[in-house]
């Protein structure tokens, strides 16, 4: 009989786990939607900014902004974006694995690693890999000012020669079930072609395009970092939602099996009892 009670206990334990995963899925879905909205609302700024940037860069051809100049690559910095929390499928594990392979393959003399998100930091601290800088607990309440701080630090390190190139490893959000992991060059800037028309002659730049570029370039990098943070956060929610959905499905499957098992065991017990009664009665007759 002990097994019967045990099975019952397991069923109820799986049930409560399922309730948790179900709730987490719902929370992730709600957050995903919010995050997606945020991502969408960066679009007007993004279009305008890249259009203006391209025009100004073209106008100031002779002068190159220091953040756009290619240098000989000796010191590379990888920025790894993971989540702050777990329970989101293979999201963090894949990112960390990719970071390892990038660091191993790197041909630079010195590699730096910066982590954004708690999970990546914990992993590299655990294996005692030197982490140049880390940012944790920023995804809980994501604000533009945080992107500005991170981008500012990267620019400073690039300008004073600490890094010659900066790559960012993160997940780009495609849709709720698909996230693409990419390694993107952050510094020096790779100009992107845009659709915005070049300004007609007679367009007044005040001050000169070169001076405008000085303000524009950091602005565009701040924004790029903001977008990357949002992409990563949105991907995390998508990944968590999928993971929790799978977990809920698995729990349901398990409950089904356990219930079947429980009924079988109950049936067996009843049969056994009946058998005993009948055979007892038979024995008395004899």
């Amino acid at each position: 009989m002990a097994t019967l009670r045990e099975i019952k206990r397991r069923i109820s334990s799986v049930k409560s786990t399922m309730q948790i995963t179900k709730a987490m899925k719902m929370v992730a879905a709600a957050k995903l939607q919010k995050s997606q909205m945020k991502l969408m609302s960066t679009r007007p700024y993004s279009q305008k900014l890249s259009g203006v940037l391209e025009n100004v860069v073209k106008k100031s051809k002779r002068h190159k902004h220091p953040l756009m100049k290619e240098r000989k690559v000796k010191k590379v910095c990888y920025v790894l974006l993971t989540a702050d929390k777990g329970l989101c499928g293979s999201f963090n594990a894949n990112l960390i694995r990719r970071a390892h392979s990038e660091l191993n393959q790197s041909e630079a003399q010195k590699n730096h690693l910066i982590t954004i998100g708690r999970k990546g930091y914990e992993h590299f601290r655990h294996i005692s890999y030197p982490v140049t800088a880390h940012y944790i607990d920023i995804f809980n309440n994501l604000e533009f000012s945080q992107a500005r701080v991170i981008a500012g630090e990267l620019m400073k390190s690039y300008l004073n020669g600490k890094f010659d190139r900066v790559y960012i490893i993160y997940n780009q959000f495609k849709n709720a079930v698909q996230q693409d992991m990419i390694v993107e060059q952050f510094l020096p800037i790779v100009p992107e072609p845009t659709e915005e028309k070049i300004h007609p002659a007679g367009y007044v730049y005040e001050p000169k395009p070169e001076a405008i570029l000085k303000v524009l370039v950091p602005m565009s990098l701040n924004f790029k970092m903001w977008k990357i943070l949002l992409e990563s956060a949105t991907s995390e929610f998508g990944s968590r939602m999928t993971a929790m959905e799978t977990a809920t499905d698995n729990a349901q499957e398990m409950i089904k099996e356990l219930t079947l098992f429980y009924n079988k065991a109950r049936q067996a017990a009843i049969t056994k009892e009946l058998n005993e009664i009948v055979s007892g009665a038979e024995a008395l007759k004899g």
């Binding site: 203006v52 367009y203 007044v204 730049y205 001050p207 001076a211």
Partner: peptide, 19 residues
Amino acid sequence: PGKNGYFGVKVNHIPFLTI
């Protein structure tokens, strides 16, 4: 607030870009 002081824009202003 332009870089070199406040400026105003009315209709039919010339096209320009400023910090």
